[in-house]
Design a protein around this nucleic acid. Structure first.
Lengths: 188, 188
DNA sequence: CGGATCGTTGATCAACTTCAACGGTCGTGG
DNA sequence: CCACGACCGTTGAAGTTGATCAACGATCCG
C-alpha cells in the first residue's frame, strides 16, 4: 500500500488521516501466471494497481483467433479497463497475468466512496488518466506513421526493460506485427 | 457559455456562484475555415470547447507528407491536445478548422485557478477524460481488428452525421485508408 | 469559362501475412 | 541422466491487402 500512497502523494499530498481512509479501501490480491483478471464480455469490477509482476491487456481477433496486445501493465501501473470500470459495462478485452502478480484492488462502489471522502483524489485520477491518454495517443500516432521496423526500434528505445522482460511474440503482438516478420526485422 | 455550463451541470451540478466563476474564465474565439488552432511543435496554450463548426486533429507523415487525421472535433466536444496542454510541452499534431468555427477557450493558468476555486470540476474533467479515453481505445481496437471495408461500415453506423458532413478524403484519412481505396470500397 | 476541388478507375508495386517446416532450449518425469 | 514435450524463434515460399502513381470526370464557384 505504501507504493500506491507514495504515488498519490507525488501528485496530491494527502495528510495522515486521508492516507488511513484511502488505505482502508484497497485490498491486496495475488494472481498466478496465466490467471485472468478480466475477460471479454465481463464487467471490470475493480480498479487494479500493479505492485509486482506484469499483465497483458489484449483482445481476440474474431476471424483469425489471434490475440492482439493492447498494452502491458507492470509495477506502478494500472491494469483496468477504465471504460468498463467506470460505466460498469462489459469489457471488450481480456487482462491476463504474464508473470505471478500482486495487485491492489478497489471496487467501483468503494472507489466512489473514497472519492467522496477524499475529493483531492479526483485530481490524482484525472492526472493519471491524462498520462494514460498520452500513451494511447502516442500509440495511435506511431502505429499510423511508422512501418513495422521503425515501430520496433522505437519500442526498444522507449521501453528497453519491457523488451528484454517479455518474449518476442508478445512484443510482436503489441506492435501489431506477426512474430515471423518481427524475427526478420531483428536480423539487422 | 450556456452550452458548456449545461454540459458541466449534467455531470457535477454547479450552483449559481460557481457558474459565475466558471463563466468568467472562458473566452469566445472564432476561427475561419482553414485556420489553425494548433500546429505541430507549438504548445497547446488553451483548452478548447467547440460551440459551433468543426475541426480536424491530424499529424503529418514525415515521409509521404500526407495528413493522417486522428480525430474530428464538432459541437459539444473538445479540440485540445490534452497532453500538450497539461504539461505545456510541444504538440505532436495540428488542429485546423474544417468549417468556420466558434470556440470557448481557457488558458492553462486560468484552468488551474478555476479548478482551485471550483474543485468540483476536477470530477467533471476526469469524466470527460474517461470518455475521450474510451474513444481512443475503441479506435485502436477497431483499427487493429478490422480491415478497411469493415472499418468504413463501422464508421458509417457509428457516426452517420460526420460521414455525410465531411468529404470522403477526410473520412479516408481518419480511417487510415487511401482515398482511392475508400472509393473502391464505396462501390458496393 | 477556367480553375479548384473531389471522386473514380486502372495498373503496378510494396509491406506484411500466412502456412508449413525445422531447430534450439529448457524443464520435467521416468 | 537422458528423453520427451512444450515453447519459442527462425526461415522459405506464396498469397493478400491496400498504397501509389497517373489520368480522367464531375461539380461547383467566382
Amino acid at each position: 500500500m505504501q507504493q500506491l500512497l507514495k504515488k498519490m502523494n507525488s501528485i496530491v499530498a494527502l495528510n495522515a488521516e486521508e492516507e488511513t481512509i484511502v488505505s482502508g479501501y484497497w485490498k491486496e490480491k495475488t494472481l498466478k501466471k496465466g490467471d485472468f483478471l478480466l475477460t471479454n464480455g465481463a464487467v471490470c469490477r475493480t480498479d487494479n494497481y500493479v505492485l509486482q509482476g506484469s499483465l497483458k491487456a489484449y483482445f481476440i481477433d474474431p476471424e483469425t483467433g489471434t490475440e492482439e496486445i493492447f498494452y502491458f501493465a507492470i509495477e506502478h501501473w494500472w491494469a483496468t479497463d477504465i471504460d468498463s470500470f467506470q460505466k460498469q459495462i462489459p469489457s471488450r478485452y481480456n487482462i491476463q497475468a504474464i508473470e505471478d502478480t500482486k495487485l491492489l484492488q478497489i471496487t467501483k462502489e468503494s472507489f466512489e466512496k473514497m472519492l467522496l471522502e477524499v475529493p483531492r483524489l479526483e485530481r490524482f485520477f484525472r492526472i493519471i488518466l491524462e498520462s494514460y491518454l498520452a500513451t494511447l495517443q502516442r500509440k495511435i500516432i506511431t502505429n499510423q506513421i511508422h512501418d513495422a521496423k521503425v515501430r520496433y526500434l522505437d519500442f526498444l528505445k522507449e521501453y528497453p526493460l519491457i523488451a528484454e522482460r517479455f518474449p518476442n511474440y508478445l512484443i510482436a503482438s503489441y506492435l501489431n506485427i506477426s512474430p515471423e516478420f518481427l524475427s526478420r526485422i531483428r536480423k539487422k
